[in-house]
Design a protein around this nucleic acid. Sequence first.
DNA 1: CGAATAGTTGCACGCCGTGCAATCTGGTGC
DNA 2: GCACCAGATTGCACGGCGTGCAACTATTCG
Lengths: 240, 240
Amino acid sequence: MLSTTESAEPVGRREQNKIDTRRAIADAAFDLARSEGPGAFTAEQIAARAGVSRRTFFNYFHSAEDALAVRIDGFLELALGVFGRLPQDEPLFDSIIRAFSETTRMEGLSQHGELFRMANSDPDLLRAQLHSWERAEVLIAEALRRRLGPATHDLYLTALVGSVLSCTKAAMRDWAATTAEDATDSGEQLEARILAALTMLRDGFSGPVAVPLADGTAGAGDGAGSQPAEAAVPPPHRLA
Amino acid sequence: MLSTTESAEPVGRREQNKIDTRRAIADAAFDLARSEGPGAFTAEQIAARAGVSRRTFFNYFHSAEDALAVRIDGFLELALGVFGRLPQDEPLFDSIIRAFSETTRMEGLSQHGELFRMANSDPDLLRAQLHSWERAEVLIAEALRRRLGPATHDLYLTALVGSVLSCTKAAMRDWAATTAEDATDSGEQLEARILAALTMLRDGFSGPVAVPLADGTAGAGDGAGSQPAEAAVPPPHRLA
DNA sequence: CGAATAGTTGCACGCCGTGCAATCTGGTGC
DNA sequence: GCACCAGATTGCACGGCGTGCAACTATTCG
């Protein structure tokens, strides 16, 4: 299982404490958001639940919403990590698609669905999440530049990365809105949507792409009335 | 000249006062951001400069940053308006491209460049701007659904609109970073970038598209090393 | 004009986010 | 083990934020 915190490196007590604290705060924030509702709790409450002072909370996060949105950062950093480990000689879009596909296997995926829904009723949380995507955009653009070469035009890079993330975001929104995340195939549901959205992007949105369902039939992906094509995962390269 | 506030409708005193106040506040905020630097002024100062009370400021905007970001909303609403007035039978991407192209002729375009640069040094301003794009995404998706038909799949719509806006955003960022906005061809510079970015999107990012320069030569749009194609505006349909 | 309605203002309150100095804790060299 | 130091936590204080509320003022309408 992919993990946000996996790191076999020997790490000192100090560093480990920081990681633990950061995690404790993020978890406390998420628990509170669940029980009290998004935007209906204070930094003080988060700190108390995490067992630190209010001041320490603000040493780790700028706001309560940031403590929630940090999970989005985790998801995107994970995807970036997977992308970096893919063979550089395969078609670019295959790498992109597989990076995000793979990342849907991460632990704690279900929380992301909740997070997206929470953002619907808390504008500040939405902003924090948008900021997370924005930060990831920069990181991914850098990684892409390393892969495509330093001469790659900026506009091409940023437009591409922005579009890819927009499609992924759209897929996750759709997934969060329509899928019960305690379902056993929740991950596959998300993966199918990401695949569909990124395939549409690769095809220049010339037409809608159906979201393949678990039972093998294609979902109602009716766009402009034409018959939607069905997306398929790229050939099964192995992770390096 | 396109205008954010143009409206020939007969409007009562009450309504006009609100419009004036809103504008006065937004202008005051922008002036302050210029003179004091983004994030270096208070709501109280904005209110004072706009000639209203602090409380009234908060009746109009949720924060100082929102008062700045409202200009982004204006730009995007303008583009949406142009899009709605285009003939519905032309190719979708032609409409999209021309809608944004056209909008670069708006008044006060230069301020947008400044706004983008300000966001680099003020995270809260960046968040407010991202929120503006997000809100516009919803509006544009609705307009697109009206055009494509109510059966259009949600994921197709949101992925498309998100990508289009990401490309436009990328174009504006690039423009803001590279172009002196007091240049006489500032508008054309932006238009060329938007055209290039949206053309790349339409082509599924199969390769970079050069940004045509005013002198007729193509700019250095070198992507993966292949020869970049040059973008061209769609045929000159007339606005309805 | 007078009543109704909509917008403005001052006030008060709890919370936010951060600089600062005191304190505590884990790492390092002896 | 002990002394020391860098780094992390904490309490405190302060200015600013964002909003509910009630009083006040301006516009609209009969």
